[in-house]
Amino acid sequence: MIIEANELSKRYKMPKRKPGIVGGLKNIFHKEYEEIIALDKICFEVKEGELVGYIGPNGAGKSTTIKILSGILTPDSGECRVLGKVPYKERIDYVKDIGVVFGQRTQLWWDLPVIDSFELLKDIYKIPLGDYLKIKKELITWLDLESFINTPVRQLSLGQKMRCELAASLLHSPKILFLDEPTIGLDAISKLSVREFIKKLNKERGVTVILTTHDMDDIESLCNRVIVIGKGKILLDGSLQSLRNTVSKDRRLILDYDGGNGGISILGATPISKENNRLVIDFNPDIITPADLITTLSTQYKIKDILIENPAIEEIIAKLYGEFNI
């Protein structure tokens, strides 16, 4: 196991402010704190080479977990080991083997060309020159940085900047990469190129990747395993398929027809909508197979086109959050 988290817990103490001037004055003399449980005995393990999606609503504890795993936050109780080390105890020795990207923060020097930041990181991580040149060249090709590598960071677009952040986190060839919302705020094309890169990195280099995101397309296109967290607890840990199955096995059939009519009363199928010669039906494949369903329907409708799809992952997650009341 490359990552082992065992009953990790973290609470934050937040000062509670009463509204208004009176409240403000009261606060001077008597400060009240509110305790927020960010993580509540979290346990999970990650094998080498896995690409794990870590998802949950805002404030669920995703970033807190990443911060603990990367050694910048000490948990209140519990323990974790990454690469055989306890991150927050052996921080300096540990961090040379990991790469971290915080999507909402930056590690590049704002006023200087991107390449200057890379050079500094080379010396900070003590990367041998030969390795550095090789890796730098590779990252530049993979992420297509060539055209703006000499531009000051402040002049880059968000997508360009994120690609540079990724490169900066990988110069020292880390074995694990933590990505905290790497696609936040990016446009469609940038998102695709970031995803492609992460996929390639994981497949070709065997880098273990832990990824937090709100973008379900990230999860769908990248992760074979997802961990869902809410209110500091792990709600689900498994494959994308098992996540689908837990919430609902339903699949969706979209049918365009030219003519035909009739009510639909098929066991295991629920009509969702029917308008403009388009019929949408959710069905449970355990009760009725797609083949049977289509056969039945074809007796009633003159079918023009058929599409079967999985329900959008967003809907599944929303249902899951609903089930756990978060």
């Binding site: 911060k67 050694g71 300096i92 961090v95 923060r105 930056t106 900070i124 991580y125 003590k126």
Partner: peptide
């Protein structure tokens, strides 16, 4: 102020010396 200090803690160096 911005929280980018996170990245400083990710460098394999004694923070004071850095």
């Amino acid at each position: 102020r911005t929280g980018n200090v996170s990245y400083e803690l990710l460098r394999p160096m004694n923070l004071y010396n850095y």
